[in-house]
Each structure stands twice: as structure tokens, then as C-alpha cells.
Amino acid sequence: MNKQTTTVRRRHDILFIAVLLFLCAAAALGLYVFREDGDTVTVSIDGQLYAEYPLTEDRVVELISDGGFNRLIIEDGYAYVEEASCPDGICSSHRPIGHNGESIICLPNKVVIEIHRREQNQPDIIS
């Protein structure tokens, strides 16, 4: 491989990397701009819907699954996992979630906690 083709390929590399990073930035920005507050927390265990709670009421729930437990806290319009039996602790270190579509996933216990928006936006009648 001569020097010139190496330079050309490196230029292609840089272009490729720039496109990838740009796509990520655009996707992240899009998600941030178009996010909506959620109002419902759903919990599924092993792919099955397990429970549904309103995000507006504070509560503490022990989610018992085959893998162990996850303690779910709902507080001030946000949900988070305070403590869990899973070895990696990914769910309990996840930041609180409160926007539509956000989720906390515990792979070892197969627990998925998701935020939804059930109430649709009221149409703006004042023009």
C-alpha cells in the first residue's frame, strides 16, 4: 500500500467518523427537543406487563422477579431504582426518569421500568 492511498483512506476514515458523530449528536438533540413529561410508570418482568402506577403519586414498590428484587421509588414525578439484588447495579445507578419513553432496564432480573404519556396534550384553543 503506497503512501497516497493510505492518506486517502485516512481521509475517508475521518469523514466516516465525523458522519457517525454528527448522526449521534442529531439524534440526541432530537430526543431532547421533542421529549414530553410522562404520567404513567409501567413495569414488565420477563417481557410480561407486571404493574402500572401513576407517576403523580409517590410510592415505594418491591419488584420481585426470578432474579431477585428491585426497589422502585416514585417521587415528585420521577421514578428510580433505589436498591436491587442484581450484581451489576446498572438499574440502581440510573438517574431518575420522568419523560415519555424513558426507561430503566435491569438485564439480570429482566425488569423493564418505562415512562409513558397516557393523557394527550390538550389542544391549544386560544389562538
Binding site: R10, H12, F16, S44, G47, V112
Partner: peptide, 28 residues
């Protein structure tokens, strides 16, 4: 691409493969 571009594609698609399996296994 040079080795760097190939390796970047490999790294990203490795993650992609794992995310796809997670989507399928957890149905999420």
C-alpha cells in the same frame, strides 16, 4: 477505509449486534 475506519465500524456494529439481541430478548 484504513484499519482505523474498519475498526470503528467494527466497534459500532459490535454494540449494534448486542443492542439488537437485547431488543429481541427483552422485547423492548
Amino acid at each position: 477505509f484504513s484499519e482505523v475506519g474498519v475498526s470503528v465500524a467494527g466497534g459500532v456494529t459490535h454494540n449494534l449486534g448486542q443492542v439488537l439481541v437485547a431488543v429481541l430478548l427483552l422485547d423492548t
